[in-house]
């Protein structure tokens, strides 16, 4: 398996409805609830690229960008 680097976790603030699912369920606690309840990535280095946040997001507002090395 090539080593995976998480390039970014992008949140589309226009689509996000602030349900908090990603903040609550991320197994690595990558997100925190920020200003106006918008999730914010607090620790990208903790992200394993499991994409669960992307899959759970009811607003299709999260994109996990992974570089395959």
């Amino acid at each position: 398996m090539p080593k995976r680097t998480i390039a970014d976790v992008r949140i589309n603030s226009l689509w996000c409805k602030r349900c908090g699912i990603c903040v609550h369920f991320c197994p690595r606690e990558v997100f925190v609830s920020g200003e106006d309840n918008l999730p914010r990535v607090r620790a990208l280095d903790r992200c394993t690229g499991c994409r669960l946040c992307e899959y759970w997001c009811p607003d299709l507002a999260i994109e996990v960008l992974i570089d395959d090395e």
Partner: peptide, 28 residues
């Protein structure tokens, strides 16, 4: 994924945390 949606209509009509959005996500 973006190629399968009509992104101009987002954010969608469903309420905060509605499961239907997640179901759409899974279906796509």
């Amino acid at each position: 994924l973006q190629d399968y949606i009509r992104s101009r209509f987002f954010p969608h009509i469903w309420c905060v945390g509605c499961g239907h959005g997640t179901a759409l996500n899974a279906l796509l």
